[in-house]
Nucleic acid binder design. Structure first.
Length: 746
DNA sequence: CTAGGGTTAG
């Protein structure tokens, strides 16, 4: 009798437990985790499925530590419990924890394998994932294949994904959609469209992938057309389209899509909020933020970021203080706001308060210090980081490069493991910006050996190094690679190419590149003009200035430096004076010291020294070394000792260490026969701490760059070179080409 | 009850 009652009760209770387990699962999927927990707590009795359902509900809603806590309490765990917990870690970006559990599991099944393939690919360990995939027995199902294909797609290994897709026997819609995403993620929209049309069956995900692909490549018209053709668009379709409009500044259109969403969720609210934030409409953003029926961590982060963007840091901080929970994203946004305003102490205060910092947070703080040139503090933090990513390393390289500390930049670069294109570009442009052109070109070729293809940034750095070295052969080689890589239409690359040819005196080639650019800008014109100026084609440079004004391109300060120096080199005195006047009167450009230096040079070469001096005296700005230097060398040419002394006096204060100034003045004294002054110049030089900067030259031969420093003695062919030089000097003497007086201080 | 495809921020 007792026995019968018990079994009757059990039979009555079973469906109740079953129903409530289902309820927990449903609530979890709807994001109503609190209610799920209430149901779970009120249940008179739990079975393993109840535990598993609740673990899943926690994990799906970001509460991974609650999930783990429950997992540890299960009286009898089954395989599903383990799998659920691993999936929980995977979806909460804790791949390390997932792997830890995987290693401890007593048994594994096909669910476990599939989860682990995803774990490994997320971690970038594609080979490990593939190894596991290949080891799997015949029980391997479509989900395993799809996980592997999608892993390849997400890490940009399109070819591998396609190979697996072709090998796969019975593909389903998920396989097709994964592969379709492979096309659209790589911007291959034409091939993607063809693939889409080949699909026998499509669902709303297929359509959404297409819309997102068009949004990514900025083709909003196609995105919109596809969006409208979707048979049953869902909220993801709408949010994708909304973001497309928002990223292209079409806020009205974004709002229209948003208003059409009938079942708005927190993601769609966040997307609209981000749209206002990105277009700096902070008032609209605030209004939406207060209207939102539900907010999550993303909402708060977006709103704080909105205040940061419009530089309302106090408002941002107030909002951060009122945030009801910890959120590294929002705290990082705040740090980034302080960093942009160089308020490092306040940034550091926020940083110190954060309990668990993620990589982005550390990187933001380090970037702040590098931005403020506080490299030692940046390095200190960098060394404390336990989990660095490639951005952390690149930030350090960038910081040292900006601070002109290229030795340290190089050290960090060599210390890091896998480098990406940003790492290489940061190093190479660092070398270029710090005048280490040979190192820049050296790294350029090392990059190819590392298997990385140069992009616009690499080419610009490489080419501008060539321009500065006047390395024509290397420049031409880079030009070849530019054409092969398809960057001929890039404005920045083209401008750098123009500048290479211009600096190397190949004005025809420069012109050829210039003519090939679809729409040139003022920099293209400037490079061409200063090329003509530099190579002595004064009239050509002036003609170009007229041409560009006809084409309604407004010349800038750099244009006039080019044109005025062209006039000066070509002796176009009157034209130069007229242009100098028109620069201010017609084009409203205030003359810079560089322009005055050109004018002093122009008048000085023509022997109109008094006029030049008058111009300097009457300038509104302070004269710099370039201006006095131009005057001094003009005085040297025209032997005006008095004025020369005035210029030299100024220069000795502005550039006490520059030898060439002393040499000029000394030569001037020597020519006037004042040898006592020449002797006292030597003393002055030594006292002033002037040191002769070693002469430097270079030549290209057989694609090799040979650099010569005076007195370096390293050149193996030095005896030969000396012989040839002596020979040339002798020839010059017979042609009576020798300067009258030479004073050698070296 | 657990695995594979599409959306929001830093």
């Amino acid at each position: 009798m007792k026995q019968g009652l018990k079994s009757l009760g059990e039979r009555a209770r079973r469906p109740l437990v079953f129903d409530q387990n289902v309820k927990i699962t449903q609530l979890g999927k709807l994001g109503r985790v609190e209610e799920a927990a209430k149901v779970f707590d009120r249940m008179p009795q739990h079975n393993t499925v109840s535990y598993n359902s609740m673990i899943s509900a926690y994990a799906k809603n970001g509460r991974v530590s609650d999930a783990r806590h429950l997992f540890d309490k299960i009286p009898s765990r089954n395989l599903v419990s383990w799998n659920t917990m691993i999936a929980g870690y995977l979806h909460n970006e804790r791949v390390d924890k997932a792997c830890e559990l995987f290693d401890k599991m007593p048994h594994r099944d096909v669910f476990t394998w599939t989860l682990m393939i995803t774990c490994y690919t997320r971690n970038g360990e594609l080979e490990k994932a593939r190894e596991l995939f290949d080891l799997l027995p015949d029980r391997k199902n479509r989900a395993c294949w799809n996980a592997m294909i999608s892993g390849y797609v997400k890490k940009g290994r399109f070819e591998d994904a396609r190979k697996l897709f072709d090998e796969m026997g019975d593909r389903d819609l998920v396989s097709w959609n994964s592969m379709l995403a492979g096309y659209t993620r790589n911007g291959k929209m034409c091939l993607g469209l063809r693939f889409f049309e080949e699909m026998g069956e499509r669902d709303v995900v297929s359509w959404n992938v297409m819309v997102d692909g068009y949004v990514e490549v900025g083709d909003l018209d196609s995105a919109w057309q596809f969006f409208q053709r979707i048979p049953n668009p869902n909220i993801v379709s709408q949010v994708t389209m909304l973001c497309g409009f928002s990223r292209n500044g079409r806020i009205q259109d974004a709002r229209r899509v948003f208003d059409q969403i009938t079942n708005k969720n927190v993601v769609s609210w966040n997307a609209m909020l981000a749209a206002y934030v990105q277009s700096y409409q902070i008032d609209e953003a605030v209004r939406l933020f207060t209207q939102m029926p539900e907010k999550n961590a993303v909402s708060w982060t977006t709103m704080i970021n909105g205040y940061v963007r419009v530089r309302k840091l106090n408002e941002a901080n107030k909002l951060l203080d009122s945030m009801p929970y910890n959120n590294v994203g929002a705290q990082t946004a705040m740090i980034s706001g302080y960093v942009q305003s160089e308020r490092m102490d306040e940034a550091r205060q926020i940083f110190n308060k954060i309990g668990t910092r993620d990589v982005v947070c550390w990187n933001t703080m380090i970037a702040g210090y590098t931005h403020c040139r506080r490299m030692d503090e940046a390095l200190h933090l960098f060394r404390q980081m336990l989990q660095k990513n490639i951005v952390s390393w690149n930030t350090m390289i960038y910081g040292y490069a900006q601070a002109g500390r290229m030795d340290e930049a190089r050290k960090i670069f060599e210390e890091m493991g896998e480098k990406n294109i940003v790492s290489w570009n940061t190093l190479i442009s660092g070398f270029t910006q710090n005048g280490l052109y040979v190192d820049a070109l050296g790294s350029f070729s090392l990059m190819a050996k590392d298997g990385k293809k140069p992009d616009q940034s690499t080419f610009v750095s490489g080419l501008s190094s060539c321009a500065n070295l006047a390395a024509l052969q290397v420049g031409k080689q880079l030009h070849q690679i530019v054409m092969k890589s398809g960057y001929t239409n890039d404005l920045f690359v083209s401008n750098a190419l123009i500048s290479v040819y211009a600096k190397c005196g190949r004005m025809l080639s420069a012109r050829y590149v210039f003519n090939d650019v679809d729409s040139v800008d003022v920099i293209s014109w400037n490079s061409l003009i200063s090329g003509y100026a530099f190579n002595g084609y004064g009239e050509e440079a002036v003609k170009l200035l007229q041409e560009m004004t006809v084409k309604a391109i407004t010349p800038d300060q750099v244009t006039f430096v080019g044109v005025l120096s062209a006039c000066s080199h070509a002796g176009l005195i009157d034209q130069g004076l007229n242009l100098f006047r028109s620069m201010n009167e017609e084009f409203c450009i205030e003359p810079l010291p560089e322009h005055y230096a050109c004018m002093v040079d122009l008048l000085g070469r023509a022997g109109r020294l008094e006029e030049a001096f008058k111009l300097v005296r009457e300038m509104k700005i302070e004269a710099n070394a370039g201006i006095w230097g131009a005057l001094l060398s003009a005085c040297r040419i025209h032997r005006n000792l008095e004025l020369g002394c005035v210029a030299a006096e100024k220069l000795s204060k502005l550039e006490p260490c520059k030898t060439s100034n002393y040499v000029l003045l000394s030569n001037l004294h020597a020519e006037a026969g004042r040898w006592d002054e020449v002797e006292s110049m030597r003393t002055l030089m030594r006292e002033g701490g002037a040191e002769k900067q070693p002469g430097c030259s270079w030549i290209e031969d057989k694609n090799q760059l040979h650099v010569f420093l005076s007195d370096d003695g390293v050149q193996p062919q030095l005896p030969d070179i000396s012989d040839t030089l002596n020979n040339l000097t002798a020839q010059m003497k017979t042609c009576s080409f020798m300067p009258e007086t030479l004073h050698d201080y070296v």
